[in-house]
Simulated assay, not measured.
Amino acid sequence: MPTRFRHAALIGKYQAQGIRPMLEGIAAFLSRQGLEVSLDRETALNTDWRDHGALSPAEIGAQCDIAVVVGGDGTMLGIARELAPYNLPLVGINQGRLGFITDVRASDWEEALGPIIQGDFEEDRRAMIEGDVWRDGEKIFEGLALNDVVVSRGATAGMVELRVDIGDEFVANMRADGLILSSATGSTAYSLSAGGPILHPSIGGWVLVPIASHTLSNRPIVLPDSQDVSITIVNGLDVSANFDMHRLASLLHGDQVRMRRSAVQVRFLHPKGWSYYATLRRKLRWYEGVV
């Protein structure tokens, strides 16, 4: 069977101790399968590995047709945002502790990668949140999130008051430590720990979750992702907006965070037979107590 892919990018969690031997093994395996292999530039610099060409995310998007990401969900989140506009499929090999979106076990990577690069895989597309921050009619920040956008107070500040509008309709003023707008993918991340529900990634929806709300009647709500969501800073000190790992600090009263469904999606490739429910069982230990 001919190889489906021709040029693979290899991205690693270069901060992880001892990751280079694993990256070298994956690169050698891909080369034996007939693929050209390039390293993400940051991975190459931080592992001092020069055996393969080093590319920026934009160059990876233009030159490669598959990306293999070795690390945890944080590593995947960072590169997924940068590569999503190029429609590049991603395979995640999990070296982290949890791993909802880097789902191939580190011990099983060769068994999983072989069929995938030959075209035998399950494809999974994930929606993203696109947003920006406005101050006095001027856009001061824009970002893209796969998991969530969080508007919250600083570590030493008191609670904040936030106005929520959905579409053209005012919803509520909420006093809390903050608000999370989560995608279905992010519903198993911060949103879950704050009491939000799990959304299957095929659902076209978001979850709006108050963080430690002052009013117990302010509950998580599932929203259609066809409408824009705006969060306006009414009151509070040291308020920040966080797009996954990209943080804009020191928002002012009257600043508005506007969010909408992005036109781009993230493409994940999984081994044949992959199941979202099996991932939940494994990661959330739902099998415990079952005889």
Rank of each mutant, 00 (worst) to 15 (best):
T47A: 03
T47M: 11
T47N: 06
D48N: 14
W49R: 02
R50I: 15
G53A: 15
G53L: 09
L55V: 12
P57T: 10
P57I: 08
P57C: 07
P57W: 02
P57L: 05
A58R: 15
E59S: 10
I60E: 00
I60S: 06
Q63Y: 12
C64S: 05
C64Q: 02
D65H: 05
I66D: 01
I66V: 09
A67T: 03
A67G: 05
A67I: 00
V69I: 07
G72R: 04
G72M: 03
D73R: 00
G74N: 13
G74E: 10
T75K: 10
T75C: 12
M76Q: 11
L77P: 03
L77S: 10
G78D: 12
I79T: 11
I79A: 08
A80S: 08
R81M: 05
R81S: 02
E82K: 13
E82I: 09
E82H: 13
L83F: 02
A84N: 07
Y86I: 11
Y86A: 11
L88M: 12
P89M: 07
P89K: 01
L90H: 06
G92Y: 00
I93M: 08
I93Q: 00
N94A: 01
N94G: 02
N94E: 00
N94F: 02
Q95I: 08
Q95L: 11
R97A: 10
R97F: 12
L98T: 05
L98P: 04
G99E: 05
G99D: 07
G99V: 09
G99S: 12
F100L: 10
I101F: 10
I101T: 05
T102Y: 08
V104W: 06
V104F: 12
R105C: 13
A106I: 10
A106V: 11
D108P: 00
D108H: 08
E110M: 10
E110A: 07
E111M: 15
A112R: 04
G114W: 13
G114P: 14
G119K: 00
G119M: 00
